[in-house]
Simulated scan of single mutants.
Amino acid sequence: MDNCGASDGSVQKRDVIRVGTRKSQLARIQTDSVVEMLSKRFPTARFEIVAMATTGDKILDTALSKIGEKSLFTKELENALEKNEVDLVVHSLKDLPTSLPPGFTIGAVCKRENPYDAVVFHPKCTVKTLEGLPQKCVIGTSSLRRAAQLKKMFPHLEFRDIRGNLNTRLKKLDDREEFSAIILATAGLRRMGWENRIGQILSPDECMYAVGQGALAVEVRAKDQDILSMVSALQDPQTVLRCIAERAFMKRLEGGCSVPVAVNSVIEDSQLYLTGAVYSLDGSDYLKETMQTSICSPLEDVEGPNDDVQHVGITALGVPRAALDAAEHLGTQLADLLLSQGAREILVVARQLNDSR
């Protein structure tokens, strides 16, 4: 999709292109990878990385689901974008709310890394599956989504909150005897070069993933056409269609990190399949359904007057409008199906119980 990016000439109007990122090691690795991809496509452009701490990075003694802030890992970065202190921001897509502040858009969703969850076992643990762990072993996870599904799947285990970035959580696992294992995103472990720590990758039957998990998003000012056009060169059509469907599902459900919502999406033979589920906190009550839609030919480059239309916060230049509409409609339809079956009641109870813990 290089042909739909900005010309080097338009990018060169700027002395330097400033790229905002969180300070964590994983965030820096992810941002470096995006800058490297942009540098290959625009070799005369100069990039400068601006790192900053976000609210989510600073509050480390409270579960994410209890903080109640929708933009935990994005607000400070978006403030810098709004003030023109940076020109674009690199996020993990799963950190971005389904509704962005006015004036912002996701200009690119990069090719997705493995979206599944991984189990990292304590170094002394000889068992390498959750099913094989003895009764009452404690598993660390900061995610209600993971805990709800795994409590249902592995009722013999206990689940406790563990906070911090990847480095911090792995250190807590290794240095203490509290946890037998922790659950982390496979994508983060692979990007950090820690694949050797992955003991088990959980299948969708065991644990479906978070909306947008494994994908990197590049957020820009919606009116900054040069930068929007430039970053669109990184757009991966299949990833963007899957993530639009997932985000539309989440948006219609009004979900977030304070309720257990999970997805799994696949594209095969021009069909987009989306499985979505909502869970009670203990996983005992849940609804899960799969729907599909035709997305025609998502790899075909089609540009037209509607290229700047957003789909759940994403501007996908060069991806056919019909495919984008179909993906968004699929997510909304699937959410409506679950809502008609009682999903709202499950989520309301889950949110109330989480707030009262």
Rank of each mutant, 00 (worst) to 15 (best):
S10Q: 13
I182E: 09
G342F: 12
A181T: 01
L353P: 00
C125S: 07
L253H: 05
T275N: 05
A148E: 02
K66P: 05
R169L: 02
M153D: 07
L96W: 01
C110V: 15
R112I: 08
V138S: 01
I17A: 08
P155G: 03
L241F: 01
S294G: 12
R321I: 11
S99I: 15
P320S: 03
Q271G: 02
D301W: 07
Q135H: 11
R197T: 11
L26N: 04
D325T: 13
L234K: 01
M52A: 08
T31P: 09
H329R: 09
I295C: 06
K171P: 00
T62Q: 14
G5K: 01
R14N: 03
S297G: 02
Q333T: 12
E85D: 10
R145K: 15
E219C: 10
D325N: 13
L234I: 03
E206M: 09
D117R: 11
K58Y: 03
K251D: 10
V312Q: 08
P102S: 08
S99Q: 11
L339T: 05
L26K: 00
V109K: 07
A53M: 14
Q30E: 10
G68E: 09
T55K: 14
I198N: 11
R176F: 14
H91G: 09
I201M: 12
R163C: 06
T129S: 14
V240L: 09
A316C: 06
D236M: 04
D236I: 01
T239I: 00
A215H: 00
P320Y: 08
L26V: 02
F179M: 00
L234S: 03
L144G: 13
L157V: 02
V349G: 04
D15T: 12
A148D: 01
N167V: 15
K94Y: 10
M230E: 01
K171Y: 11
V309K: 07
F121V: 12
Q213Y: 00
L144N: 11
G255Y: 15
R28M: 07
C296T: 05
L157A: 05
R252C: 08
T275C: 06
A327G: 00
T290F: 08
N165L: 04
L130V: 02
V35K: 02
K83F: 15
E69A: 14
T141I: 03
C125K: 06
Q341E: 14
A108T: 00
G212F: 00
K288H: 01
L228D: 04
V86F: 00
L88M: 14
K40P: 07
N79S: 06
Q213L: 04
T168G: 07
A277H: 03
L72N: 05
K288R: 12
P115V: 15
R321W: 14
A80V: 06
Q310T: 13
G132H: 11
Q292N: 10
A222K: 15
F73G: 13
N354V: 07
